[in-house]
Structure formats: C-alpha cells, structure tokens
Amino acid sequence: MPYLAEISRANPSCFVFLVDQSGSMQDPFGSVTGTKTKAMGVADAVNRLLQNLVIKCTKSEGIRDYYNVAVIGYGGKGVKPAFGGNLENKQVIPVSEIGNNPFRLEERRKKTEDSSGAVVEQTIKFPVWFDPVAYGGTPMNAALQSATSVVVKWLAEHPHCFPPIVINISDGESTDGDPFQSAYDLMTLSSTDGDVLLFNVHISSSNHQPIEYPDSENVLPDQHAKLLFSMSSPLPDYMRKMVGNEGIDVSYNTRGFVFNADLVSVIRFLDIGTRPSNMR
C-alpha cells in the first residue's frame, strides 16, 4: 500500500533536511563568476523549504503539526542539529514550533493581487532560520548516517506514517568517502506505507541550466550531479504524475533530484487534503 497513508496530526510524518555547510560552499553559485555563493544558495533553499512547509500546515487557527522536522548541518564543525536561537540543539521539532521560532523575520516587498485582481505591492515578513555557513570538510556519509538514526527512531514510534522524506542540499563533494551505501541504507528503511524518500538538491558552480526531476544521469553535467542522482529515490507514482502535470517529461526512473533549482514543488506534492487545482 505505497504512499497512501493519511498525513494528519494523529499520524504525522517527518522531514529531515541535510544541509552542506562545508568550505566548498564558499564558491560561486550558478556560474563561476557569480556573486552569490553556494552557501547562500543552500541557506535560501532551506529557508524556502521550511517557509513553504510551515505555510502548507497553516490553518485559520494556527499551524497543525502534520510534520516533525529535523535539520542537520554538516561541515567543518561536524554533523549536528543546525537550528539556532530557541530551537538550538533540538533534534526533531514539530512544524508549529519551527513556524513560531524563525531566527529573524525580514521585511520584503512583494507584488500580489488584491480581491479584484489588481496588482499591489505589499510588505511581507520573510522568515529566516539559517544564514550561509561555509567551513571545513563535507562529511556527507556521516550526515546520511545521522539522518538514518533520526529516521529509524521516528519509524519505531510511527510505523504506519507516510514515509519520511529526507532532503540533502549539497554540492555533492563528499570528503568522508563515497556516500552511496549510506544513502542506500537510508532509502531502504520503510514504514508500512513505503520506503523512505531521499531527495537531493544539487547546488553547483556550473552555469549549466537548471534541471528538475531527471530520469537519467546522461543529462547531468558532472560526476557530483551523477552521484547525487544515483542516491536519489525514484518518485512514487502519485508524485511522478504531479511532476508530469507540471510539464516535465517523466518515466519510471524519474528521481527526486534537482540541479541548481529549488525543490519547493515537493512541498506542493504533499497530500494533506483537498488542494484546489487553481491554487499555487
């Protein structure tokens, strides 16, 4: 019965984010001459994923704890929970606690539509949990093993949950050995509803155009991308259909991998109830 479990407060699921904070993240992001670093790209990616997950779980009365979330940083300071502030040193945190404890709220201008459809500019509050960090080596193996520990404990307590989703955000330059076996060990854990999903966001200095949800390593520009693709889970049927509906060619080998692109669409794919086809 794969990937059919209801996600609810009584039967929550789990997200684990693995955040590469190694020294190589000081390099430019998206092109070798860019001004934005890969560390900035990683921080943006994590903040946007968390923001979207919190909003996904928001209802009129507040945030419903459909998910618990762990964010594990890996770099020169080792492998450890990456939240700061009120969330420092906490391992697996209900999404409501994350939503109510961003490190800071920045004010940003955003164009939006009012009820009559007119475009108006508004000031919105943008939550920031993570600032860019780039220091030391890339212990991706150890990070994946740490995620495995978190997920094993979660599955023992929630054996019938929608399978946990692990998202690794990295440039793929592991310095503690080939991470494939550790990734495989993680991807083959399961709840009664299916295997754990490991998705990868590749943040690269290459100026190759962004790639979303490929189904073959042949389209990928370098060995790091191919490694991360190889350790990404094939998308479950229903997610594959949703990716296809977004105009991306899919096959049974389409995987949860993006190259220099964001993975926020994964949050949109989570099924917590009726989602209007015209809601973005």
Binding site: D114, S115, S116, G117, T274, P276, S277, N278, M279
Partner: peptide
C-alpha cells in the same frame, strides 16, 4: 484537486 472558487476573484 478540483477547480474551486477562490475568494481572490481576480
């Protein structure tokens, strides 16, 4: 995911 009526009619 049915098509629904949005309160932002625009």
């Amino acid at each position: 995911s049915p098509l629904l009526l949005c309160s932002n009619l625009g």
